[in-house]
Design a protein around this nucleic acid. Structure first.
Lengths: 336, 336
DNA sequence: GTGCCCTATGTGAGCGCTAACACTACCCGA
DNA sequence: TCGGGTAGTGTTAGCGCTCACATAGGGCAC
């Protein structure tokens, strides 16, 4: 169907050089006379020549493509990460191939990775925030450049991650600093490392202040589960401060509190996590923790490129990006 | 670095056949004895053989990859579309390569398409909701299977789109049915076709009811702009019903109304568009219009595959997916 | 001038696969 | 008995590129 475009030999013929010289120009090889280079460039432009990535990939054994394995790219975090990754990769001359996956279990991840390997991607980024993903990664071929994002801190796999613990500690501390006696926590799904880290940070901040952490409320990232937890918290008069594991949970909590007539922040303060673009327009505007997705993307891509260029095992194995607290109107001192 | 895995000839040797027979097994060619097929399969499994997509792409002139060009994959609509597209493509054995783009102008789109073409993608899906994208598409190579999503209904390019007009008409009609005299509209950015379609539907519903449409409020999809428009609308006592071009605008409007003490839905009714997962947890739960992103993805991929398989020009050129109204609590009859 | 290195370029092989065709059995009807 | 299909398999030739090497022409030291 598609008429095949010009190949390197066509360019070479037009420029009056060998195909190899064209290749050299294309790959920025130094030993080419300036005049020749210009002639080749002109021929390329004239013919509208476009190098064939497949042929290059065949001979070099690797394409200029990075595979990304992610679960739910509709969620704000993963979507932002994916977008940032794609931007950064494009700047480095790499394309990004997504392989999203319904479940982050061993089989699904392996399958997604296999699909990427079939296309001979240069490297793989796995957004693997879940326990079960970890084991899949250990069984993967050892010779493929691979970086995990938000993965298991315990595993010996290159990892870039948002400092969940620090973020959660900051959020909790912010509430304590406002004068609250204790802080309740609505968590994300228990198998996510993000959840675990945020729980840990919350707990650490309380313990550091000599406070015994109150019972944990389990959510699943969704506003719906935040709402359910909020309905319980709203009926407990002793609750004055809530830290939720993400902004959508916070939205659900806010809605429940509103229904029960508990005013935010005068009666109850709330802090979220993620800083979704709408967080500033919740009722009231939500104080939250903002992870730097761009920085995570840059760091993980950089780590991957290091592996690609200098062999597996080169470069850092672990990098942590600190999030920042964004103070808005959902926090106030408790009434006495 | 990466040790090259086994090639087709290795499998062939182990199975005691020629590489061509292996190829036939891999591609489901009929004329292979069942026994041979099993032997080859066993050899493939034993060696952990994985076909080399680059080699195949080189010889067939096309890889099993579909390129997607999109602008802001962080927005809910595009993100959902991308995810659905990826799912559907995976089921058909295609990988998806994203090429996101900062601006949807001529140059950026062309560049993104070029990048995809360099990798010899089988086809391209352009999520091109913006005016300026249209011209870029016309200058593209004619021999590449291409489908646009949410693009310009005027252009002679294969197009799958959500029926924005019908959705907006339904939303507006829903408010009129509740007894409102008129409906105000907060629109999206004026260069998006989605915006244009939603404005058109809103206007059509009003005109059909013999109502002169009130002035349009221009937003930009963000909650922030919804908030600004909401601040104006909140001060106008005659406003009793608002239809916003998406849910985030609605969130901003709700917040503004809340600040001005205008109650929703008792004083003012609000309807959004998109049905983001959190919409049910706004204060109050938002009545909105839900586009079927999965259906859009399926339709566009199907259209693309038809082109790929049966040549450009085969199959339908235009498909429209009807959205559905989701009624929640943000609509009530006006007070008299 | 001879030998040597350095730069600029060309030549040939081959990456792993598919497409086209060649070939071998074997079966069937005339 | 033989031509001619048909199923199953092998052989060969590239796809467009990069890599390793070969080659040619200077410049420079001796």
């Amino acid at each position: 169907m598609a008429v095949h475009g010009p190949a390197m030999t066509d360019v070479a013929r037009l420029a009056g050089v060998s195909h190899q010289t064209v290749s050299r120009v294309l790959n920025g090889h130094p030993n080419v006379r300036e005049q020749t280079r210009l002639r080749v460039r002109a021929a390329i432009a004239e013919l509208g020549y476009r190098p064939n990535g497949a042929a290059r990939a065949l001979v070099t054994g690797r394409s200029q493509v990075i595979g990304v394995v992610a679960q739910n790219t509709t969620l704000y975090g993963p979507a932002s990460l994916l977008a940032a990754l794609e931007q950064t990769a494009a700047e480095e001359g790499f394309a990004v191939s997504v392989g999203s996956v319904r479940n982050l279990d061993h089989r699904s991840i392996s399958a997604a990775v296999e699909r990427h390997l079939a296309h001979r991607v240069a490297g793989i980024v796995v957004i693997a925030p879940v326990e079960s993903a970890g084991e899949a990664l250990e069984r993967l071929p050892q010779d493929v450049p691979l970086v995990t994002v938000d993965g298991d801190p315990q595993r010996p796999v290159p990892l870039v991650t948002v400092d969940q613990v620090a973020g959660a500690r900051a959020a909790t501390q912010h509430l304590l600093d406002a004068g609250h006696r204790t802080v309740w926590h609505v968590s994300g799904p228990s198998d996510w490392f993000d959840s675990a880290g945020r729980i840990e940070g919350w707990r650490a901040a309380l313990l550091a202040a000599g406070i015994d952490p109150p019972p944990l409320m389990h959510g699943d990232w969704s506003a719906a589960s935040g709402y359910r937890c909020g309905q319980m918290l709203a009926r407990m008069p002793e609750v004055t401060a809530i830290f939720t594991a993400n902004d959508h949970l916070a939205l659900g909590v806010l809605r429940a509190l509103h229904e029960f007539g508990r005013r935010v922040p005068t009666e109850i303060s709330v802090v979220g996590f993620d800083d979704v673009p709408e967080a500033a327009y919740f009722i009231p505007p939500l104080t939250t923790v903002r992870p730097d997705f761009d920085a995570v993307a840059r760091a993980s891509l950089h780590m991957l490129l290091t592996q690609i260029e200098s062999g597996i095992g080169g470069g850092a194995l672990r990098q942590t990006i600190a999030p920042t607290l964004v103070a808005r109107d959902s926090v106030a001192p408790p009434r006495h």
